[in-house]
Write a protein that binds this DNA or RNA. Structure first.
Lengths: 339, 339
DNA sequence: CTGTTAGCGCATTCAT
DNA sequence: ATGAATGCGCTAACAG
C-alpha cells in the first residue's frame, strides 16, 4: 500500500532518495537519512507496485505457463502426475529465479498471445501445443519461448523444446512385446491431448513390427475419450475374444493403471488374460498389481530443463542445443506375460 | 505491443476515441470512425497493458494461490493428487471468472503479504496455513482472502475457510477399525504439511477410543518425514512384531498407498499381516491391491467452493456461511481385516 | 548528497 | 462526436 512518495513524505526527503535507499545506492545517501528511510520502509512494509514496474520496463518478471489443452479436459489435466511433476518443478525454479508464475490452461492461441502481451510476460513455457499452432505463437510472441513436448512442422523459427525419445519409447516397448510373443497389440493414445508425441510413439511401434518382419496397421490404434465410462466400455470391448489382442500398449501410466484396475475388477486377469504396458513410469506404475511394465521418463526433469533454458534465453545466452530430447528406458515389471 | 496511442495515431483520431471504441461506448463514436478504429485494433492485435491497469485501478485481476508449504517439500506438494485436484478446479474457475492465477508455493508469510501487495492482487487463496500465521496474513492483507483447510486460533477476524470434517474422518475410520477388532492402531500424519487437520483427525481417533471405553495416547501418533527412504524404514519398524500394531491409520491415500505397496513387496501382507486405512479417497486408493479403505472427501469441490466464495467476496456479496465444512464418509474397501 | 522532472499506457474528466 | 489534460508509482537523467 505504501508508495515511495508516501515514504518520502514521512521521512521528509525526496522520492529519489527513497528510491536510492531501496536500490542500495548507499553511496548517494547520507548514513542518517539511510537509517531513517530504511526504518520507515520497514515499518510501512513497502512493496514495489509491479504495475508501475511493468509500465516502466515493459516487462513484468512473469513467466506464463500454458498447458495447451481443451477446456473440457481441464480439471483432469493437472491431475495426471505427469503434469503435476512438471508443474511442481517449474514453480520451484521460477520462484528461485525471482520470477512469478502465471498458470493458464487454454487451447486458444490468440488468447495465449493476448495474455503474454497484456502481462508483458518475460517468457513463456508452452506444454503440448500442436505443431501448426507453435508457429503461430512463435511468430506472434516476441519474448523467449520454451516448448515442452511439442512437435514442429516448419523451420522458420528456432524452436526451443524439451522433448522425449517418444519414438524410441514406442519402439522399445513394442520390441519387448514382440520378444514376449505378442503380435496382436493395440496402441491406446490419450487423444487428443498429446497428438505429436503419440504419433511418434506409434511410429516407434510400427518400426519394431517392421524390423520383426511384420506390419502394424493404423487399425491398431485406438484413441481414448475423456469420459471415463466410455473408456471402460472400450476396455471391455478390446479385451473380448473377438478383438483378439494379447497386449494393450497405453500411452500413459494414468490410463494403463485405470484399465488394469478396471479389468482386474471385471475378472479379466493381467497379465494372464491380457498384457498391458504403460508410459511415464510414474508412481501409478508401482502402485498397481501387477506392477506396470512401462517406458520410463523423468518428467520433473522436463520442467527443470525448460526453466533452465528459458532463464538462459532471458540472460541472452547462446543455446547450443535448442531441442533437447530426454532419454527413455524400458522399465520391465510384471504386467506382460510371455506367450 | 500496440498501445492505444499508436492505434490512435494510425487511425488519425485521439486516444480517447480509441478508448471509447475499446469500451464499447459506441454512442460516443461515429460509425465511420468506429469501423476504422476497430479494424486497426483487430489487425494490431491490441491487448491492454495490465501494468497501466494496475496503476490506474489499484487492482490487477490476479488471484494469488498460495500453497503454504515448506520449500524442501515443494516438488512433491503438487504431486499429491489432492493438491492437483484442488488446483485444477481453481485454475478453471479463476479463468472462467475472467481473472488470472498466480501460483506460489511458500511458507513465508511476509513474502505472501509482499507478493499480494506488489501485484495488487484482487484476492488470495491460501492453502494449509498454520493458525497463528493466518491471523498475521489476515491483518496485513486487505483484499478478500479464502483459506482452504486452515484452522484458526483467534476470532479477531472473520475468516473464510473451506474445510473438512477432519475430526469426524478420524472418528469414523477409527470406529470402524475398533468394530473390526483393532485396538492397537498407529496414526501417521504427513507432518508438518497439514498440522491443523491432522490433529483434528487424531482427536477423532481418540474420541472413538474413548467412546469404546479405551484410551488412545499421543504415543499412537507418528509423523512421517519427507524423505521416502526414511519413511520406508518407519514402515518396516512399525510393522515389526515388537511394535504390535494391527492397523495403520494414514492421513493421506498417498502415503497409505506407498506403504501398502512397499510392505507387500517386503512380503508383509495387507490386510492379513497388518491393516491399513487412507484418507482422501483419491485415485490411488482404487489402484492399489487390496483397494484402500479410506475416508472420502471431494477435493476438487474444495477448490470450486473456495473460488466461488472468493468471487462472492469480490462482488461484495454477503457470505452467510464463512466457514464451510465439507462432509466426509467412510469408504470401506479391502485393506482392513477383521480380527 | 538531495531534489525536480519526464514519461511509461491507460481511463477519466473536462473542454471543444 | 472528438480531443487535451491529468495522474496512477516508479525510475533514470539531470539539476542543484
Amino acid at each position: 500500500m505504501a508508495t515511495i512518495k508516501e515514504i518520502s513524505r514521512k521521512a521528509g526527503v525526496s522520492a529519489t532518495t527513497v528510491a536510492n535507499v531501496i536500490h542500495g545506492r548507499t553511496s548517494k545517501v547520507s548514513p542518517a537519512t539511510l537509517q531513517k528511510v530504511q526504518a520507515i520502509i520497514e515499518s510501512e512494509k513497502y512493496a514495489p507496485n509491479m504495475g508501475a514496474m511493468m509500465l516502466l520496463g515493459n516487462n513484468s518478471r512473469i513467466i506464463g505457463v500454458i498447458m495447451f489443452t481443451e477446456p473440457r479436459h481441464n480439471e483432469t489435466v493437472l491431475e495426471d502426475p505427469f503434469s503435476s511433476a512438471i508443474l511442481g518443478a517449474m514453480e520451484r525454479d521460477i520462484r528461485a529465479a525471482g520470477y512469478y508464475m502465471m498458470l493458464y490452461v487454454s487451447s486458444d492461441e490468440e488468447e495465449v498471445v493476448r495474455l503474454s502481451k497484456a502481462w508483458k510476460m518475460d517468457g513463456l513455457i508452452l506444454v503440448w501445443v500442436p505443431g501448426k499452432i507453435c508457429s503461430i505463437i512463435s511468430s506472434s510472441v516476441d519474448v523467449p519461448l520454451v516448448y515442452i513436448d511439442c512437435f514442429f512442422n516448419d523451420d522458420d523459427h528456432t524452436y526451443y523444446n524439451i522433448g522425449l525419445e517418444d519414438r524410441r519409447g514406442g519402439y522399445e516397448v513394442t520390441k519387448y512385446l514382440l520378444s514376449m510373443g505378442h503380435t496382436n497389440i493395440l496402441f491406446l493414445p490419450c487423444n487428443p491431448i498429446f497428438p505429436g508425441g503419440d504419433s511418434e510413439r506409434f511410429s516407434g511401434c510400427k518400426e519394431a513390427f517392421t524390423e520383426h518382419g511384420l506390419v502394424l496397421t493404423d487399425e491398431a490404434k485406438r484413441p481414448l475419450p475423456y469420459d471415463r465410462a466410455k473408456r471402460e466400455k472400450i476396455y471391455l470391448e478390446i479385451t473380448g475374444k473377438d478383438a483378439g489382442y494379447t497386449a494393450l500398449v497405453f500411452s500413459s501410466d494414468y490410463y494403463a493403471s485405470e484399465a488394469l484396475t478396471f479389468l482386474q475388477e471385471q475378472g479379466i486377469n493381467v497379465p494372464d488374460d491380457i498384457s498391458i504396458t504403460g508410459f511415464d513410469d510414474n508412481i501409478f506404475s508401482r502402485l498397481v498389481t501387477p506392477r506396470l511394465t512401462t517406458v520410463h521418463q523423468d518428467s520433473s526433469r522436463k520442467g527443470r530443463l525448460a526453466i533452465e533454458m528459458l532463464m538462459r534465453l532471458l540472460r541472452g545466452e547462446e543455446i547450443e542445443q535448442p531441442r533437447v530430447t530426454l532419454p527413455i528406458y524400458l522399465q520391465i515389471r510384471d504386467s506382460v506375460r510371455k506367450l
